[in-house]
Computed example of a mutant assay.
Amino acid sequence: MTLSPLAQGAALFRPHPDVDLLLRDVLESARARAHVFGTEYELIWSEIARSVRGGKRFRSAIVLGTHEALGGSAQRAAVEVAAGFELLHTAFLIHDDLIDHDWVRRGKPNLAATMRAVSMATGSEEGPAQQWSEAAAVLAGDLALTRAHRLIGGVDVPRPQVEQLLDLLDETLLVSAGGELADTAYGLGLHVPDLDEALLVCESKTAMYSFRAPLRAGAILAGASLAEQMELDHVGRLLGRAFQLVDDLLGVFAPEDRIGKSNISDLREGKHTALVLRAQQLPVWDRIAPDFGRPDLDRETADAMRAALAGSPAPHLVEDHVRQDLAEVEVRCVTADLPDAMVEFVAGITGHVRTALDDVVEHVRASAR
């Protein structure tokens, strides 16, 4: 069959009102209960809610879209699981910012930065305020993770499906944490990965909880066969890897107002992305290496590094890898025994990732000028 180029892509990332309402109710209830422990604890829940509101909601959209495309009828359960994945995503972001010592998320102060500012406004010294804010971020991530587990594990569906969802959540946490640990080791220089290891991190972190697990969760709720679930898992692995490779390119070449964070932090931290690993095999690396991973990397030097990378084959090699992954997704969808509606839904996700890739290619060209 012929794949629709964007299919449902235009509507894919619109927040679902039922998911938003459930998240609001869950988090407001927790905030109200937290009030007895003081305004700071109440603020943590308000900040978790703010973090949730800022997301694109595509993980919940994948759960709901997959459930619908496979003919599922457990609509309320799908909404609850979808909301659980948004809370899972929020928990990972809060902990990820803490691990990376980042204080900005989506162009605004993140949870830890807000808590630090509140502490300093009440007279705390900078050192204790930072330590307290980091503790608050650890706890906030744990709280969001627990709420996600409760939503996903508490759905009103037959017990075998609940057990499958809980097994999936356990697998998601196990794989994602392993990917985060490896990524942190690479960033600290404890081990320099090769390209296969870097791609495995993409599959373990972003792909697992953002694509593979939401696709499988929607399929479980729809009563899909194990074969269908495993096919969607493979599709999700390819989509997630492609998505992360695009995100890594955006993190270097896109303007900061486009990505909502620093576009020199990856270079400053010495992050071994596929882009960097490709560049290390090319003559351009002689121009990059002296400043790569410099904690005091300034913007002028970073701009020169960016221009050198943009003028090299490195970003185009990463682009080729993304296009190959997306092409494999399309081939698998055509040859796999999946319903037409599911094929069309996956085509919408593929089209969105391809559009993001085309966008970053333009940023690379601009950086090379």
Score class of each variant (00 low, 15 high):
4 S>T: 12
7 A>M: 06
10 A>W: 11
11 A>R: 13
12 L>F: 15
17 P>N: 05
21 L>P: 00
28 E>K: 08
28 E>I: 02
31 R>F: 01
32 A>S: 13
33 R>Y: 00
33 R>K: 13
37 F>L: 14
39 T>K: 06
40 E>F: 03
41 Y>I: 14
41 Y>W: 12
43 L>Y: 05
52 V>Y: 06
53 R>E: 15
54 G>P: 06
57 R>T: 05
60 S>A: 15
63 V>A: 02
63 V>M: 01
66 T>P: 01
68 E>L: 12
70 L>T: 00
75 Q>P: 00
76 R>Q: 14
77 A>H: 03
80 E>S: 15
85 F>W: 12
91 A>V: 07
91 A>D: 04
93 L>T: 09
98 L>W: 02
102 D>R: 11
105 R>D: 06
107 G>L: 08
112 A>T: 08
121 A>K: 11
135 A>G: 12
140 A>I: 03
140 A>P: 04
142 D>Q: 05
143 L>I: 08
151 L>N: 03
153 G>N: 11
153 G>Q: 06
158 P>D: 09
161 Q>N: 04
162 V>A: 02
164 Q>G: 09
167 D>C: 07
169 L>S: 07
173 L>A: 13
176 S>A: 15
178 G>N: 15
179 G>Y: 10
180 E>D: 10
180 E>P: 11
193 P>S: 08
198 A>I: 10
204 S>I: 00
209 Y>N: 07
215 L>M: 14
215 L>W: 04
218 G>N: 05
221 L>D: 05
222 A>K: 00
222 A>G: 05
224 A>H: 00
224 A>V: 00
230 M>Y: 10
230 M>E: 14
230 M>C: 07
233 D>Q: 12
235 V>G: 02
239 L>Y: 06
246 V>F: 04
246 V>R: 13
252 V>L: 09
257 D>N: 15
262 S>C: 06
268 R>Y: 04
271 K>N: 05
273 T>L: 05
276 V>G: 04
284 V>N: 06
296 D>M: 01
308 A>H: 12
309 L>H: 03
311 G>I: 00
315 P>I: 03
317 L>V: 04
317 L>H: 09
321 H>Q: 15
327 A>W: 01
327 A>L: 08
332 R>Q: 13
338 L>C: 02
339 P>C: 05
340 D>L: 12
343 V>S: 11
345 F>E: 01
349 I>D: 01
349 I>V: 15
351 G>V: 05
363 H>Q: 13
365 R>D: 13
367 S>P: 02
369 R>Q: 13
